[in-house]
Amino acid sequence: MRFFRLASATVAVAVALALPYEAAAHPRVKADRVPAGHPTALGTGDDEDADDLFGASCFIRVEDSWVTAYCHNPYPDIDLVRLHVECAHWWDLDSDSRAVAAGPAQTVKLTGRCWQKVRSAWISHQRAS
């Protein structure tokens, strides 16, 4: 009896390790792209002016074929955020959401979906003029 438990546990571990990375990845994905020159980007110093701080922090979650993103803007400038969803299958249409204004100290929710599988999702940022 003990042998069967050990054998089934070994098979389960072997199957989990054999899965492709995309299939084994956790559904919570932090995929916010930071533009070059942004204060949180690599290579920028702390000597930048506080007026240059811009960009909402976003958290993206993928569950099955649904994508949900929450973006919080801690800065005084309005950030126009868009959710971009790329679907895994060639016949499934990719989508880009409309621009949603994330005002100072405001959190906004963006949603998107594919018919079957999501390949990737990301947020784009734009200053409101």
Rank of each mutant, 00 (worst) to 15 (best):
S129C: 01
A14Y: 12
W122V: 01
K30G: 06
G45V: 06
C71N: 07
D32P: 00
P35T: 04
K117F: 05
P35Y: 06
D77E: 15
H26L: 07
P39D: 03
Q116T: 11
P20H: 07
V100F: 08
T107W: 03
A14I: 15
T107L: 02
A16T: 12
Q116F: 11
V118F: 01
R2M: 09
I60Y: 00
A14R: 09
P20M: 12
V108K: 01
A36L: 08
T107Y: 02
V67D: 00
A25M: 05
F54Q: 03
Q106K: 08
G112W: 00
F4H: 04
Q106W: 03
A24W: 01
V118D: 02
G55N: 06
S120W: 05
H72S: 06
P74G: 13
S124P: 02
F4L: 13
W90C: 01
L93S: 14
A102W: 00
P104S: 12
A99I: 06
A7F: 15
S97A: 11
D77R: 09
A25W: 05
A50W: 15
I123T: 01
W115C: 02
W115M: 07
A7Q: 12
A36H: 10
G112P: 01
P39M: 12
N73Y: 14
V11N: 14
Y75F: 15
A25R: 07
E48M: 09
D46M: 08
H38K: 04
E63T: 14
T44V: 15
R127A: 11
T40R: 15
S120A: 12
P20D: 09
Y21E: 10
R5T: 07
A12I: 12
H84G: 00
S120Q: 07
H89P: 00
L17K: 08
A105M: 15
H84Q: 06
Q126P: 00
A102E: 03
A56R: 05
S95K: 11
S97N: 11
S124H: 02
P35S: 08
H72N: 06
L17W: 14
F54G: 01
V85Q: 03
L110V: 04
R2E: 13
A105Y: 11
H84I: 05
A23Q: 12
A101C: 13
P39Q: 10
W91L: 04
R5F: 07
F59S: 13
A105C: 09
S120K: 04
V85L: 05
A69H: 00
C87T: 02
K30E: 09
R33N: 06
I123H: 02
A36R: 11
D94I: 04
S8N: 14
W122P: 00
Q106D: 08
Q116L: 12
A36N: 15
R127M: 04
R61G: 12
T111N: 10
L110Q: 03
C58Q: 01
A31V: 04
L110R: 02
M1Y: 10
H38Q: 07
F3E: 08
L53Y: 15
R127Y: 10
D77K: 10
D96R: 15
D94T: 10
C87F: 03
D92A: 09
D77M: 11
L83R: 01
A9C: 12
G43I: 04
A99Q: 14
R33Y: 05
K109F: 01
V29F: 04
V29G: 00
Y75N: 12
V108F: 04
A56Y: 09
A12N: 13
L53V: 04
